[in-house]
């Protein structure tokens, strides 16, 4: 049976995460066989479809171009997936807020379980996924005819972009009388996307205020880093919610993660402990973050950060 990957896209561009999900699909195909199709649903998405067709391993891109999918609302997108799913043994999406929003609808309407946020493919029907905020890794086996899966992108290396899949339009505008889009307030930033950045510099409650986050700007500029935050920093209103790293925020696994004024609660660690190198700057030498940090600096951040910026 073939595999369908739901493309993730924002602002008219295919999200980098999709290339990681296709990599997971390739691992499934290696064991279970089958072609890999990508579904691009949205309005005015031809450039996105072309980008998806270039991903290695993709045989066919199916394009549902219709205003009803413009904001990726779960109800119509779920119905579209249900209509297409008969052709597939697996349906995969990124474990993003879009994937998490829509895939469980497909699973429920197909009367199958969903396997959330896999980090490894053992075989076409067996997967690994973190549970309990990453404090345990479960191996799960699915006997369902259709496997509905969300994929943690950081756990799979992206496929290349040398492919040449076919592009096909699907004529399937479903009705949606249940929900409608009102507006969106997206955070604008010139920095790399948190989930994909090679370096992430995060601030916690210890930063003390939103203004003090500027102390991280200079360092992030020099390192080409994305800026993240702990939940405490978001709750205190220092920074926007889309910057939260952790069990219930973004999952990151950069080459370098710098945690500043973050204590290291398990819910925060769940989002960053797969980073390659972790640096912690904290004035409390007992802070649990030091137990996972490769390099710990016990220091007042207000002194350490300006010095670090000047020495980079």
């Amino acid at each position: 049976m073939s595999i369908l990957v739901l493309a993730e896209h924002h602002d008219g561009q295919l999200a980098e995460a999709t290339a990681h999900v296709v990599a997971a699909a390739q691992q499934i195909a290696r064991d279970g066989g089958g072609d890999i199709d990508v579904l691009v649903a949205g309005e005015g998405v031809s450039a996105i479809a072309e980008a998806a067709a270039r991903l290695d391993g993709v045989s066919r891109v199916r394009v549902a171009d219709d205003a009803v999918y413009a904001h990726q609302l779960a109800e119509p997108l779920g119905d579209l997936l249900v209509a297409l799913s008969g052709d597939y043994g697996h349906v995969l999406a990124t474990a993003s807020t879009t994937g998490k929003n829509v895939l469980p609808r497909l699973a429920a309407l197909s009367d199958v379980s969903q396997i959330s946020e896999i980090i490894a493919v053992e075989s076409a029907d067996t997967f690994k996924r973190p549970i309990y905020a990453g404090n345990a890794i479960a191996t799960v086996h699915s006997e369902d005819a259709l496997k509905v899966i969300t994929v943690r992108p950081t756990a799979f290396d992206a496929v290349g972009e040398t492919g040449g899949g076919a592009i096909e339009a699907i004529d399937n505008g479903v009705d949606n009388a249940l929900s409608s889009f009102i507006d969106e307030r997206l955070e604008q930033s010139d920095r790399p996307e948190l989930g994909a950045a090679k370096v992430v510099v995060s601030g916690g409650r210890g930063m003390g205020s939103g203004e003090n986050f500027q102390l991280l700007d200079g360092i992030a500029d020099k390192l080409g880093a994305a800026i993240g935050a702990s939940r405490a920093a978001v709750d205190a209103g220092f920074v926007a919610n889309d910057m939260q790293v952790g069990q219930t925020g973004k999952i990151v696994a950069p080459e370098l993660y710098v945690a500043v004024g973050i204590s290291g609660a398990i819910q925060h660690l769940a989002g960053m402990k797969d980073s390659k190198v972790i640096v912690a700057i904290n004035k409390d030498e007992e802070a649990p973050i030091f137990q996972v940090a490769d390099y710990g600096l016990v220091a007042d951040l207000f002194e350490a950060l300006p010095e670090l910026e000047s020495k980079l």
Binding site: V112, S142, D144
Partner: peptide
């Protein structure tokens, strides 16, 4: 249709240096 076949602890990070 979903069975948990094993539950393992995650790979521990080596404690680093100060």
């Amino acid at each position: 249709g979903l069975k948990r076949v094993a539950v393992e602890p995650p790979a521990e990070r080596q404690g680093g240096v100060k």
